[in-house]
């Protein structure tokens, strides 16, 4: 009796929608051909070097220099973006002002504008004779062709990641919590720093990690403005490109593997933050 009932309920639960095998099969095949096998090719090439060979290539001074430039500039840019991205998300969600929707739409410009276009435009602006470059040139400050230029380009491409991660969370923060805080005698400043900002922390961290990861990997918008001087303003993706032009596939593979390992670790960290914030606050994607 009970066996029959459970068999019945199992058959009733069976999905009536067709196409599972076809769609999942296509998805996995396509993913394997386009993404998995090429990435495995990279992994196999790196593994073929053995630990000593890999270590020797990875600790080449110019490689370490380019990784340092990439990571330090990306860290600074992501920091700037967290501050201004949070501010912009706040202003767009909480305040009403003319042109708000247009500015809201423009946040996504770095997603839509090809990186090479952004690169030459930023260079034109921040070169010593450009609109903004000319303002700093008299003080002996050069922006384009220095690491500052790299940071500017990374701020440009990273900004939407921070704003778009914080915005939906900020929209969900309930006014009642703020009212409660105010009734209990908190000043507005205290309410913002002790009540609202903590609930935004997971989103801010996620936005930071996304902007950082994007900055580290970015190529197109940076190479025009960077100056590309080894040890000073040469980013890791550019060094990969240079190694390939020299047909030094081993050198390129090693830099790429190091970068991939770090960005996968970041991806993992982002997932942890989101899982943690879902547990803690009940939202967070």
């Amino acid at each position: 009796m009970s066996a029959a009932a459970s068999a019945l309920s199992r058959s009733r639960k069976r999905n009536v929608i067709p196409g599972f095998g076809l769609t999942l099969g296509f998805t996995l095949t396509y993913f394997s051909l386009i993404i998995l096998i090429p990435l495995l090719a990279l992994a196999i090439r790196s593994a073929g070097l053995g630990f000593d060979g890999f270590w020797k290539a990875a600790t080449d001074p110019r490689v370490l220099g380019s990784l340092r430039v990439s990571f330090v500039t990306a860290l600074i840019a992501a920091g700037v973006n967290v501050v201004f991205g949070t501010l912009i998300a706040w202003v767009l969600v909480r305040y009403r002002f003319p042109g708000r929707r247009i500015f809201d739409a423009i946040i996504d410009l770095p997603f839509a504008l090809p990186t090479a276009v952004a690169g030459i435009a930023l260079t034109a602006i921040y070169a010593p004779n450009g609109t903004i470059g000319a303002l700093f040139a008299p003080f002996g400050i050069r922006i384009a062709y220095t690491p500052i230029g790299i940071v500017i380009a990374m701020i440009f491409i990273g900004l939407p990641f921070v704003v778009r991660t914080i915005q939906p969370i900020l929209e969900e923060v309930s006014h009642e919590v703020e009212e409660a805080s105010a009734t209990l005698g908190a000043t507005r400043f205290q309410t913002i720093t002790r009540v609202i900002l903590p609930s935004l922390t997971p989103a801010i961290l996620t936005g930071f990690a996304l902007a950082f990861a994007r900055g580290v990997g970015e190529y197109g918008s940076i190479i025009f403005i960077a100056g590309n001087i080894p040890f000073v303003s040469e980013i890791a993706p550019l060094l990969i490109y240079i190694r390939l032009q020299e047909f030094n596939y081993v050198g390129a593979t090693v830099i790429a593997s190091v970068m991939l390992l770090i960005s996968f670790a970041l991806l993992f960290a982002i997932n942890l933050i989101q899982a943690w914030s879902r547990r803690r606050y009940g939202y967070g994607d």
């Binding site: 580290v216 990997g217 970015e218 190529y219 993706p237 960005s263 996968f264």
Partner: peptide, 10 residues
């Protein structure tokens, strides 16, 4: 999360 240059490299 893969740098565009690496996407070409593979």
């Amino acid at each position: 999360s893969v740098s565009p240059v690496i996407s070409g490299l593979v």
